[in-house]
Simulated scan of single mutants.
Amino acid sequence: MTSNSPDRPATAHPGTPVRGRAHPPRHRQGPSPEEGELLRPLSRRQIADHMAELGELYAQTTPSGPRKPRTSNHSALWDTSARGSASDSSAPSDSSAPSAQARSAAFLRRLADHMRRPGFELLVAETTRPSGVTVLTACAYGFPVLGDDAWWHELDGYLPANLLGLAAPGGLFVIGDILVERRVRTQDQSREWNLARRLQKRLLSDHTPAVGVMLVDRGDTDTFEALLSWGWRCLPTAGVRGASRPADRRLLVLR
């Protein structure tokens, strides 16, 4: 006599499919980055309302190591923040380094100053957490510069003549800061949906025709390498337009 035991696995003849057999779960692809991160511009009034959040975002996406500010009042691009998290263990530690609060305050002062420029635009990236709360995950801002703009003070000697010519009709757009998480700098940098690429592309497309311009300190290799991975191109700055000394900043453009 044969008994039916629930503890015995079912058997089948070779080639006969077994009903109810569980197949290995397939890897489920998550939502596309375009769906996960919403980009939107903020008006000046909205920026003022979100200053505290923007300051926190700056502190979270920039390293805590010492940073040497530039003396020029016309550009804050020495502090371009395409960097990783402040908790990055590779960041140098120094007791003389400014606190996160001090660095955020400096960023907000710079932002408030740049907001007064004609054509200024700031984009934020937002995502909704499982709890339903919407949070800022990234931001970028910039503004157009004309040929007679005071921003070019002490910088025109480093610009190729053809590039400086684009500034006269407003064809150059300075991107002042790109604040993104470390993963954006280290993962899928060449993909068009990379968050930093989406931010900078949106800024430039809103000001067509325009060529993006950034200046980065030569010692800031972290920012420099991140920008190259996002499609920026470094232009030679030594000896152009009669520059009398080697440029201490790298000139990068994005078309």
Rank of each mutant, 00 (worst) to 15 (best):
R83M: 04
P9F: 07
S5V: 14
A59C: 08
Q29P: 15
P9S: 09
A48R: 15
A86L: 00
R45A: 10
L42A: 02
S32Q: 07
G36S: 08
S89I: 01
R40V: 08
S43L: 12
T80N: 07
H50I: 07
G65I: 01
G36E: 10
D79M: 07
G55P: 00
P25H: 14
S89P: 02
T61Y: 00
A48P: 12
G20V: 04
P25M: 13
W78N: 03
R67H: 09
G30R: 08
I47W: 01
A86G: 08
A48V: 11
T62L: 03
S64C: 14
N73T: 15
A59S: 08
A82N: 03
H27P: 12
T62R: 08
G15A: 10
P14V: 02
D49K: 10
H74D: 07
G55F: 00
G84H: 03
G55Y: 00
T61G: 02
A52E: 12
S87W: 04
A12S: 10
S5K: 15
L39W: 13
Q46F: 01
L38R: 14
L39F: 09
R44M: 10
V18W: 01
A59L: 04
S89L: 05
S32N: 10
R70D: 03
G65K: 00
L57Y: 03
L38C: 09
S90A: 11
E53S: 12
V18K: 13
A59V: 03
T16V: 06
S89H: 07
V18M: 14
L42M: 03
P24M: 05
R19H: 12
D7S: 15
A86K: 02
T11F: 15
S72I: 02
K68P: 02
S85E: 07
T80Y: 05
A91M: 05
S81A: 12
R40Y: 08
T71G: 15
D79K: 06
S72W: 06
G55E: 00
T16G: 05
R83F: 04
S85V: 03
R83P: 05
L39S: 08
L42V: 01
R45Y: 08
L77M: 12
G36R: 06
G36M: 12
D88N: 12
Q46E: 07
R28D: 10
K68D: 07
R26I: 10
A76N: 09
T61V: 03
S87H: 10
G65S: 01
S5D: 15
R44I: 12
E37I: 14
A48F: 11
L42D: 04
T11R: 15
S85H: 08
K68E: 14
I47S: 06
R26F: 05
R83H: 04
G55C: 01
G84K: 00
R28W: 06
G36L: 09
S72P: 00
H74K: 14
R44S: 15
R70G: 12
G20Y: 00
R45I: 09
L57N: 01
W78D: 04
H27G: 04
S89V: 03
A48W: 13
Q29M: 09
S75T: 07
G20C: 09
I47V: 15
T71Q: 12
Q29V: 13
N73H: 14
D7W: 10
S72F: 02
H74T: 14
S32H: 08
R19M: 09
A48L: 15
R70Q: 09
G15H: 05
G65W: 04
H23A: 07
P63A: 13
